[in-house]
């Protein structure tokens, strides 16, 4: 696998930074290399947050933000109404994973592959009123195929602890199963 770069678009409080950390933990379990780079500022709950990640078979040298993402993860499609553009910097082969009930109009043709997941409903159903990050991780595993769902589930338990981790791992699994992938 060549180095894959992620741009994760979310709001403060949705757990994107933890999700990126779990991606690195899953990479450790898969004998891969990864990196999670949060773009911290004077953040607050509800404000747009950019988080970046990299995944590779080789050690990762860059320590910068991601400008040309191979994978865009959108935790909240309402961010587009705030002017956050999921298309920014993407290439011909870029993949989108988006949390919504249906695909926002016109987005399908801009990406090589799109994974649609209703992460809010799944999270409410499996856990309750908590951030949708575990569900988004399940959708990432399904859509990209870069990390298997078992590694993601084990990483969630390792990072969140046994009690909270198990239910979140179940949430990731459910999202993995229900993510609809549009391709070709």
């Amino acid at each position: 696998m060549t180095e894959k770069e992620f741009r994760i678009l979310s709001r403060g409080g949705q757990g994107a930074v933890t999700a990126a950390h779990i991606l690195v933990e899953a990479a450790v379990l898969s004998d891969k290399y990864a990196q999670a780079v949060p773009n911290f500022g004077q953040e607050r709950k509800g404000a747009p947050v950019y988080t970046f990640a990299r995944l590779s078979d080789k050690p990762i040298e860059s320590h910068t933000y991601v400008y040309n993402p191979d994978i865009v993860v959108m935790f909240d499609s309402f961010l587009m109404e705030l002017g956050i553009d999921p298309l920014e910097g993407i290439g011909e082969d870029s993949i989108l994973i988006i949390n919504d009930r249906e695909l926002p109009h016109g987005i399908r043709d801009s990406f090589k592959k799109v994974g649609l997941v209703d992460a809010w409903s799944i999270t409410h159903e499996v856990i309750g009123n908590v951030p949708p990050n575990a569900a988004m991780l399940g959708a990432i595993a399904k859509t990209t195929g870069l990390l298997d769902i078992e590694s993601i589930m084990e990483a969630i338990v390792n990072v969140m602890g046994e009690k909270i981790g198990q239910v979140n791992a179940k949430c990731a699994k459910t999202a993995y199963e229900r993510t609809v992938v549009y391709e070709g």
Binding site: A20, H21, V24, A27, V28, K32, Y33, A34, Q35, A36, V37, P38, F40, P59, I60, H63, T64
Partner: peptide
């Protein structure tokens, strides 16, 4: 270590 680019960056 560089603030945020290392302090808050998670790696293997």
């Amino acid at each position: 270590i560089d603030g945020f680019f290392l302090t808050h960056t998670t790696e293997v």
